[in-house]
Design a binder for these strands. Structure first.
Lengths: 205, 205
DNA sequence: CAAAAATGTTGCTCGTGTCAACACTGAAGA
DNA sequence: TCTTCAGTGTTGACACGAGCAACATTTTTG
């Protein structure tokens, strides 16, 4: 029996982060507890303080990680789609899908106090995720698939739309039961609301 | 000195609700504390339990009250507007305005666990608020100002859109500083995204 | 008018966040 | 190699909030 328990964990910060993400997924932001995180990482209740100044900072780190993954999901969703509009659309769907898959995590990302002071990493990651959307919208605009005009405003429009669906869906406010129905609705919203320039707008079926 | 402090408060439930709403506005849902609410109502730390089974129920009541006020705000915003589309639009603006005016309250309404069991009143009030939006959309549709098709879907589309703006705005994720700028953006979103049937869609300026 | 129900209070237990003091470990310099 | 020392983890406090139980006071009701 070489070492039943090394005094030093080795990758505690990462372990804490993962444990926190998992815990949040299980009990939600309200039930989330620093001590439980420590317990799950097999470490004393005060060990986390060596890596995170306080509870809020750990949550900020969780949020940051969430934004990274959200960004990845969007990029992955857009990849291999042909046509800029299609890429934008699938990025949006990936956004909604993420919110559905990790509703609690999504809540932490957008409903925790977001002071730059507490979570610069989180703010950066969020910025980056929005940047991805921004680029996709820009590509559409450059290609003439979206009206010209204030690019930022247009990107924010798309973001708001998708975010609205994602939030209502993850909060279970939409009257749809299955994930498939929700994604169908998301598709509907994206298709209907994208202000395309030409007249190939689909009619409401 | 007739009665320096009557044993029975008289309207404690209402007082607690108001105190809770105020406290949440000040410290946010995270800092919210049953005991502090009791303190502010000038009552012992256990008195609230006579009126609310637990902390979550008080929050549910706060949410319910929020939905009532949100509904009123929408109705008030729509009133005296001429044209169904205009009424719908101003209801949406009122929705965003509410979220801006009471961001923490808004968070409680939409990000608390929303089990029907815990908050039937809250669920009803939310239902009612959505009903208002639903009626406004229906009026537009009946008048031919919105495409025919699944009414519920169309109403949910409008709700999602407005909710997205409201949520991002109240979470301070939008790059606009002043309330006026945010409302201008909200107007833009509503105007651009409403799928109007005729060709009088405004171009992106 | 008595009994019971409603409403408030005091006093606990338990869990959590956070601080302070201490212990172990690995790496850098003597 | 031996000694320090910074980094990391632990134990032990304290204050405070949620919720339970037992008790007090008022109001209602039979």
């Amino acid at each position: 029996m070489p070492r039943p328990k090394p005094y030093h964990h080795g990758h505690l910060r990462e372990a804490l982060l993962q444990a926190a993400i998992k815990l949040i997924a299980e009990v939600g932001p309200a039930g989330f507890t620093l001590r439980e995180v420590a317990r799950r990482a097999g470490v004393s209740h005060n060990a986390p303080y060596r890596h995170f100044p306080d509870r809020e900072d750990l949550l900020a780190a969780v949020a940051a990680q969430g934004f990274l993954e959200l960004n990845q999901a969007m990029l992955h969703g857009a990849k291999h789609q042909n046509g800029t509009l299609n890429r934008l659309k699938h990025a949006g769907l990936a956004y909604v899908e993420f919110a559905l898959r990790r509703p609690e995590h999504f809540t932490v990302m957008f409903d925790a106090p977001v002071s730059k002071r507490k979570g610069p990493a989180s703010a950066d990651a969020a910025e980056q995720a929005f940047g991805t959307l921004f680029e996709l919208v820009k590509a559409c605009q450059d290609e003439g698939r979206l009206p010209i005009g204030d690019l930022r405003q247009l990107a924010l429009l798309h973001w708001s739309m998708v975010h609205g669906v994602a939030k209502l869906a993850s909060a279970k406010r939409l009257p749809y039961k299955s994930r498939a129905d929700i994604l169908k609705f998301a598709t509907f919203v994206i298709d209907e609301s994208l202000p395309v320039r030409s007249d190939n707008r689909k009619k409401v079926q």
